[in-house]
């Protein structure tokens, strides 16, 4: 079990560097598309739990999505939180958007693009 865990951590680390290296300048289009996924009830439905600037009828189940760049200086950390928050916090209530294939990998990228602007 432990080598697998180590391995996945390594993968996360290296892939984050990879992502950083790969990062292209954000474009408005990606941010808008990410926002649409975040707000859509049948996709991210993030407003169900989080207050988000520009969204109505937000829940307070989770914390407001504010100062995201300060809270997650590394884009990859934010991405991994959305992908599967239980890696760091086993009792999290945040759905594992990536691990459970709730969103596609591309959609998660767009969501991260948008959330990182908040």
């Amino acid at each position: 079990m432990r080598p697998i865990l180590m391995l996945s951590l390594l993968v996360l680390l290296t892939s984050s560097q990879y992502a950083l290296a790969d990062e292209v300048p954000l474009n408005e289009d990606a941010i808008e598309r990410g926002k649409a996924i975040v707000f859509a009830r049948s996709r991210g439905n993030c407003l169900a739990c989080h207050a988000i600037k520009g969204g109505d009828l937000a829940g307070n189940y989770g914390p407001p999505l504010l100062l995201m760049k300060a809270r997650y200086p590394k884009r990859a950390d934010l991405r991994s939180k959305i992908w599967d928050a239980s890696v760091r916090e086993p009792t999290t209530r945040m759905p594992p958007y990536g691990r459970h294939r709730i969103l596609t990998e591309d959609e998660i990228d767009l969501v991260v693009d948008f959330i990182h602007t908040l």
């Binding site: 180590m6 391995l7 390594l10 993968v11 290296t14 990879y18 992502a19 990998e105 990228d109």
Partner: peptide
């Protein structure tokens, strides 16, 4: 060996970010 494997996996994961991971 693990690092090598991890890097390999990372590249695969990175490729996964591309539209086609089918």
């Amino acid at each position: 060996k693990y690092v090598f494997l991890a890097m390999g996996l990372a590249i695969v994961a990175g490729c996964g970010l591309q539209p086609s991971r089918d």
